[in-house]
Design a protein around this nucleic acid. Sequence first.
DNA 1: GCCGTACCGTCCGAGGAGGACGATTGCGGC
DNA 2: GCCGCAATCGTCCTCCTCGGACGGTACGGC
Lengths: 188, 188
Amino acid sequence: MPAVRLSPTSYVVLGMISLRGPSTPYDLKRAVGHSVGYFWHFPHAQLYSEPERLTAAGLLTCETETEGRRRKTYSITAAGTEALESWIAEPSDSHFQMRDPAELKLFFNEVGSPEDVTRLAKGQIERHEERIALYEGMVARFGPEPTDNPRLITLELGLEVEYATLRFWRALAAGDLAGLRRRRGEPA
Amino acid sequence: MPAVRLSPTSYVVLGMISLRGPSTPYDLKRAVGHSVGYFWHFPHAQLYSEPERLTAAGLLTCETETEGRRRKTYSITAAGTEALESWIAEPSDSHFQMRDPAELKLFFNEVGSPEDVTRLAKGQIERHEERIALYEGMVARFGPEPTDNPRLITLELGLEVEYATLRFWRALAAGDLAGLRRRRGEPA
DNA sequence: GCCGTACCGTCCGAGGAGGACGATTGCGGC
DNA sequence: GCCGCAATCGTCCTCCTCGGACGGTACGGC
């Protein structure tokens, strides 16, 4: 049972199995796809390899189907639950990372033309409007009151951020960043 | 001159050299540290390996110091500039990623205790307040008017996002997510 | 039964992360 | 000048992440 370094990915796997009960990698893939996946993307292949690592570390157990499709069902162990809980309890260390290609393009916009910036902004506005519609739909379906479903709380954070970036790109397209600053100063 | 896949990291290197002129990896490290680095982190080692790749692809040229400290100075080529410009001009494909460990913890908070959430929120509030102070300081120093310095425009986006997340964690700590939703609906 | 299609699992090569370590330089003390 | 120390700068190594390619499995239509 070698000690392994646990990454955020590890905790997503542990957390998902903890919330859902015993799961196969494919179960995880789908579950992640319409929840955590929206704000923390990772490729499906890791949902196959990561549980293996965690099993080796004693945080999961694995049961292999013998008949038909080879399939592995992972369950969380006491050690796994403990690891997850202590991660949740420990103070959060690092700041978030944005990783927005559009923001990069904007940063280097001096190189390009002003029309590039306008086009970029237009595209981003659409993109964020779509995302907001998606999130609002989820809220409407699963619980209009934020406290209805604890797992939906993070959606509120997602929405808050989406609206913020939308405001930014709209202000940029309208050439009114000063207005954006002014409105930020107002009481909320 | 083999064709290489260009990642966002590649464009950061190209963009930085394009803005600053010929640079050594260490120059880039420092330049990135107090600009792009705030919203797109990457380890310093890549600022040594990535220019090599780009040189192999013909997008940069490299001049090696012979005396004293081995040191390489990279300059952008015409092909490099072209690659950068066409990247800026092309429509932005993918949505941004948040990658916020705190958001993950919140998502899995059912596993933990309510005090964990409160503690998490308190920590995040501090963290984002610090970040906002840092950004506001930069704005005050380098250009109170958003349009003063084109490279500072992204700072406005950073601030907008920081304020949004700060509002969220404050609302969460105050147990008033409903209020957050209500205020989002108001005209801006 | 045969075939097409959606579903599911594994592999692999390239790139990213970030710490460890080694080399170089400048500076203060003598 | 010479030494030693600390800051600066460059490279390497190992593990992890990425994401597409590929191949196997189940199921419905005919």
